[in-house]
């Protein structure tokens, strides 16, 4: 049976027995570079650029590794942007479908990570706008009652309250640009430079949006922030 080993032409077979080690080197017939012989573990070891190069040369399996590498982060990013978890899963799928379509044209001018986040942020922005238009066309109030819901939840005793849920609701109150800046900085822990690249704006704009977003959120969650004071002292 022919052995096909990526990137090498010899295979070392080791047999470990307590007290001794036997190793045999098998010569393997030289073959042209054959990506088919690669297995999932090979992809996992590769960096993003290597995977994209493979994908662009026709190895579609490399895409799965990219998805598995970033799915959790994109999921968390969108959980910060949207309140309804059911819609988030759909959106994450759409983002990766967009990535799949655009990846053949990726030019390595930025890191894949930043590029992916940019697609995710743009898709989130479109979705937020689409929802606004839909609510407007259906004559629904643009105020979806989030503020009242926060107030109601804050009124419950702390031991019965889900603070994480309240923070989510608070984020939902922020306008899209402020929300994106706060989520990228305070939830995802990104630098100003990275956020500017993802949001495609100046660093000064990022600083201003972040500050305004934090201020709005601080006011919306005032009782929670104040409680933390008593809790910490």
């Amino acid at each position: 049976m022919a052995l096909r080993i990526p990137g090498g032409f010899r295979q070392r077979v080791g047999l470990s027995i307590p007290g001794m080690e036997v190793s045999v080197t098998l010569p393997v017939a030289r073959k042209e570079h054959d990506e088919r012989a690669m297995v999932h573990a090979d992809f996992v070891r590769m960096d993003d650029d290597g995977l994209i190069t493979l994908f662009q040369s026709g190895e579609e399996r490399a895409f799965r590794t990219l998805v598995e590498r970033y799915e959790e982060r994109i999921h968390n990013l969108l959980r910060g942007m949207f309140h309804d978890t059911a819609a988030v899963d759909d959106l994450v799928q759409e983002i990766f479908i967009k990535v799949y379509e655009a990846l053949p044209r990726f030019r390595f001018e930025s890191s894949f990570y930043t590029w992916l986040y940019r697609i995710a942020v743009n898709r989130s922005r479109d979705e937020i706008r689409r929802r606004k238009v839909r609510r407007f066309l259906s004559f629904q109030s643009l105020d979806d009652g989030t503020e009242h819901e926060i107030d109601a939840r804050l009124a419950t005793p702390p031991e019965n309250r889900d603070d994480q849920e309240i923070i989510h609701l608070g984020l939902h109150l922020l306008p899209e640009k402020f929300r994106t800046a706060v989520v990228l900085k305070d939830l995802e822990g990104m630098s100003y430079e990275e956020i500017a690249e993802i949001m495609q704006c100046e660093i000064g704009t990022v600083k201003s949006r972040l500050s305004r977003g934090r201020t709005m959120l601080r006011k919306a969650l005032q009782p929670l922030v104040k409680e933390a004071e008593y809790g910490t002292h």
């Binding site: 968390n76 959980r79 923070i167 305070d186 939830l187 822990g189 969650l221 922030v225 933390a228």
Partner: peptide, 17 residues
């Protein structure tokens, strides 16, 4: 208050893969 707010945000529970 800002400091507490950012601490609350960064302590958000993350979903796993």
């Amino acid at each position: 208050e800002l400091r507490r707010l950012t601490a609350l945000l960064s302590s958000r529970k993350r979903v796993s893969a």
